[in-house]
Nucleic acid binder design. Structure first.
Lengths: 216, 216
DNA sequence: TGCGAAAAACTAGACGGTCCAGTACTAGAG
DNA sequence: CTCTAGTACTGGACCGTCTAGTTTTTCGCA
């Protein structure tokens, strides 16, 4: 197929595909840093080591490039977290699992790239409402839906006590995520807590959650 | 043309001050709708019924106008909520008061104007980090700080049980605010819940909070 | 398999058209 | 005389197109 000098397990690709990728990366950088209006196509071309003509060969317009980037980033974002809930036996195992899940979710979401993406998408809600809706659905909504299903199973086994699984999932999700996300959204990427701080935060959130929804 | 009928207790102002106000209002509208880069000074001048020269007589630059507007809006925003905690006697009175406070906070914050302001400020975090910091401090941080103080007093009277008042305040704040805010941030202003929905949401949040922090 | 030409992709830069922040200038109202 | 409306203007940014010439890939055919 392609030339087989593949380095470090990276699938080798033709020149065109390589340029395509370079453009995507440069554009991601530019849009995340400068916003939709603030980014300019000349800079993207220069940054990706490609002529402007080539940029327009791969993407029909600035708008199309923007949509492509945001959707691909939101697509990748949520996939890393969803893990099947293992058999938890007993209250203490449940607590440990919830803390672990919360911490995993936090460390995935609380990265500069995803915070910048979130700022970018929020900024463009009036211009690109669909992008924001997709981010919401593939982000918090998906997390909460899966949590709700898991909580329902746990309730059936009397490990949790709840009447509204989705409300419980929302409470769990935001007990854990809201404080650091909203801090970082306004205070910038350097306000992202350290992994240890996130772990402590997760533990406190789970303690509150279990006080409200845990088996007595 | 300029009639001097001061209506509804509005402080009497000269023509210059009136133009000043008109410019501020038009600029607020423009910036909230189109963002910093998307707004343009010609539109602001036209919208406020003033010549462009006059706009620049009152505000030295687009940037200065933007900063002025955002700071004035963030200043007004938080002031409406802070109410002295009355004497609450007993657990049920506390619950009712917390629900009421939560609902008040929600109805103040969950308005299109403030959601738009929040989107605008978040969008401009890289360009105007100070504005975002001020919004954070005068918004969530102030609310949580005041809550923490109130919670500490309640803990001294054994109506709450907590070791870290600020953590408890954060949990309360985000149990109540996070879900609707983050929904509206991404799904747009029409995703702002109705007052009745907000009331129910507040009640559920307070129930969880009291399960974790309420007196046994 | 290897060669060579057509096809496709790419570069560098210029350019048209549009938009916009901020300034300058004139005419007229108070 | 002072302030302002109205408007034209400056200087520059930027999207998307175009041109002319170069490089890479593809593929028929030896």
């Amino acid at each position: 197929m392609e030339t087989d000098d593949n380095q470090a397990g990276e699938a080798e690709t033709g020149r065109s595909a390589r340029k395509h990728k370079a453009i995507l990366e440069a554009a991601t950088e530019a849009f995340l840093r400068n916003g939709y209006l603030g980014a300019n196509m000349d800079e993207i071309a220069t940054l990706s080591g490609v002529s402007k003509q080539t940029v327009y060969k791969h993407f029909s317009s600035k708008e199309a490039l923007f949509v492509e980037i945001v959707t691909s980033m939101t697509g990748r974002a949520g996939d890393a977290v969803h893990a099947e809930m293992p058999h938890v036996e007993g209250v203490e195992a449940l607590r440990r699992y919830l803390v672990d899940y919360a911490w995993r979710q936090l460390t995935v979401v609380m990265t500069p790239r995803l915070m910048q993406l979130r700022r970018l998408v929020i900024a463009e809600v009036p211009r690109f409402p669909d992008l924001a809706r997709v981010l919401y659905e593939r982000g918090p909504l998906r997390a909460m839906t899966m949590l709700a299903a898991a909580f329902e199973r746990l309730a059936a086994r009397d490990l949790l006590v709840l009447d509204d699984p989705m409300a419980a999932a929302s409470h769990f999700n935001w007990l854990v995520m809201a404080e650091p996300i909203n801090r970082a959204m306004l205070l910038g990427d350097e306000a992202i807590p350290s992994p240890e701080a996130l772990r402590q935060h997760a533990e406190r959130g789970v303690r509150v959650f279990l006080a409200a929804y845990g088996a007595p």
